[in-house]
Amino acid sequence: MQVSLHVNGTLHTLEVEPRLSLLDALRQNLRLTGTHAGCEHGVCGACTVLIDGEPSRACLMLAVRADGYAIQTIEAIAPAPGELSVLQDAFCETHGLQCGYCTPGMILAGHVLLKQNSSPTREAVVEAISGNLCRCTGYGQIVDAILLAAERLRAGNAAKTGGRP
């Protein structure tokens, strides 16, 4: 079957079997390997992408049903090759990752939270990432990263220096 997917601002037309997941389509057909497979049954969140701006599990979405949405993967977050967003940089500052496997999902979850809430509490951050499992960090430095990014975005907006969140 043919399906047209709008991924990171570009429209792609793919020929896929109906059973192919969006996760596999992104990784194999589009070579976007930043989205990861952890369980393929919707629990771990390593496959998180944004669908119309909402965090969603790519392993629970069939590619043939993913037309008509704006899909964003982790590859869309960095403003340019070699540059990091404020949130990504905050993860580097607090060491909010170790192996990096769950990290794209965590960053997308944090990204969405910060768009909805510029001053999240610690509890709000914990809730926002509760669907993303991590085995390396124990979550502490991840929460620190998202809170740090929130602080920097608020300061940045206050100073009106621009820059993409």
């Binding site: 919707g42 969140g45 998180t48 669908i51 909402e54 965090p55 969603s56 599990r57 629970l60 979405m61 979850a109 809730e127 926002a128 509760s130 669907g131």
Partner: peptide, 9 residues
Amino acid sequence: VGHPAIRAR
């Protein structure tokens, strides 16, 4: 019900 990503879809 689940968590945010489940509730989104």
